[in-house]
Design a protein around this nucleic acid. Sequence first.
DNA 1: ACTATAATGTGAAATAATTCACATATATGA
DNA 2: TCATATATGTGAATTATTTCACATTATAGT
Lengths: 206, 206
Amino acid sequence: MRKHFPERTIQRLLLYYRYLNFMLQQGTKMISSRGLADLLEIMDSQVRKDLSYFGKLGKRGAGYDILELRNKIAEILGIKSKKNICIVGMGNLGSALSAYKGFEELGFNISLVFDVSEQKVGHKIKGQICSNYSDLLKLIKENSIKIAILTVPANSAQETALALEKSGIKAILNFTPVKLTLSKAVKIRNVDLALELKTLSFFTED
Amino acid sequence: MRKHFPERTIQRLLLYYRYLNFMLQQGTKMISSRGLADLLEIMDSQVRKDLSYFGKLGKRGAGYDILELRNKIAEILGIKSKKNICIVGMGNLGSALSAYKGFEELGFNISLVFDVSEQKVGHKIKGQICSNYSDLLKLIKENSIKIAILTVPANSAQETALALEKSGIKAILNFTPVKLTLSKAVKIRNVDLALELKTLSFFTED
DNA sequence: ACTATAATGTGAAATAATTCACATATATGA
DNA sequence: TCATATATGTGAATTATTTCACATTATAGT
Ligand SMILES: NC(=O)c1ccc[n+]([C@@H]2O[C@H](COP(=O)([O-])OP(=O)(O)OC[C@H]3O[C@@H](n4cnc5c(N)ncnc54)[C@H](O)[C@@H]3O)[C@@H](O)[C@H]2O)c1
Ligand SMILES: NC(=O)c1ccc[n+]([C@@H]2O[C@H](COP(=O)([O-])OP(=O)(O)OC[C@H]3O[C@@H](n4cnc5c(N)ncnc54)[C@H](O)[C@@H]3O)[C@@H](O)[C@H]2O)c1
């Protein structure tokens, strides 16, 4: 099985996964590529192509067994094994994210959250006790955490990212509007919400 | 002169815009496509191709005049004219977004925020007085708002989206993990944060 | 058992986005 | 002024992704 799939394919797999789960709850047993495609408003051939990267998962003439396909996708995406993550910067956005159930559903567990502020360190925020940023290196190493969500102010972003790299973090979901510069060993994904809004707005008639 | 460009081009234009602003503050006058490209870690030919969609903006042998280019991009993206937007659902995420300065920098103004909760309606949240969801139609029409950010719970998402459509909204930035079904006249852009995290995680070695 | 219908899996074709390569223009220094 | 270096703008080539088209297999009805 190759390790070079379009990123979009992986993202669609996740969307399939959500719908399959929903259909399971409804008690449906089988679904066709067309059925899935209609739900997502994409082409059925796209669904088949996406799934075909990972083997022959369907049955000609019948479609896909929902339970089987759901489990297969969970396996492909590694959803069964919980991954611990941390959030750095428990301000407006960080604390909102720490309360979000959607991460858990995809196999993540927020096991540490950090801040520098005296008001926050040692206190519960959305059910999580906030750790001190000065213990970042120690705690992340101790807990072997590999993934971090970065929600500190823009002007501390690069510095914080360096600390994360030092502590052994291998992937950062970066919400700051800052281009982080780290070694190639750390994978960075930028989520730029202002950019999302502007893109939407640009392609909208008015 | 719109609509036929890759979406990614528009997004990169925004990133160029941020860097150009920064360089202006530094007092730099000119920048080459290579210079910009290095900052964003992309190809210089990509920068030139992006800009070439909008005319001959540079000077051979010299590069791009930063001020000129910045203004041109602002014009292309329509950043000079403020656009009013609203947020529906002032919970964890909605209230974090309402406090975000990044929207304003790209020409947006959050002029209305809505919730259904008695605790919130009529009270200030992050400096904004929260309006009652039951006044949505009236207030959005009165203020001719065309863009909405949707941050209500998943199970009210579709219903709320329909209300937004009815009130004249033309674009929705949807943070709920729900596929909204509206007429083609309303542009929808989904921001799926769990999906972003999972995509990052999938393509990370461990 | 047979026929009509449904649906997959996959090369091939089409479409989209990126990168290359270079002719052309400008700038700089001797 | 001339030579050299710099850098744009853009077709052409390449690479990536999506869609088509159909041979193949399964199902359901009679
Ligand atoms: N608020 C939003 O909705 C939003 C949206 C998109 C992007 N962002 C970006 O996310 C980041 C955070 O935004 P916010 O609105 O939550 O800001 P905020 O000021 O509310 O929160 C930042 C938090 O980080 C803490 N902090 C500062 N330095 C730190 C460090 N070195 N280590 C750990 N914690 C540190 C602060 O004490 C504060 O609690 C910013 O970069 C912002 O641009 C925010
Ligand atoms: N919290 C996050 O970081 C996060 C991340 C990604 C996506 N999301 C999604 O965003 C949405 C909101 O998440 P949240 O964590 O802020 O939830 P939340 O429960 O904190 O907030 C939801 C708010 O919406 C209000 N509300 C309910 N029905 C409404 C209606 N019809 N009109 C207006 N307001 C209404 C509620 O009173 C509440 O204040 C959810 O769909 C969630 O899946 C949240």
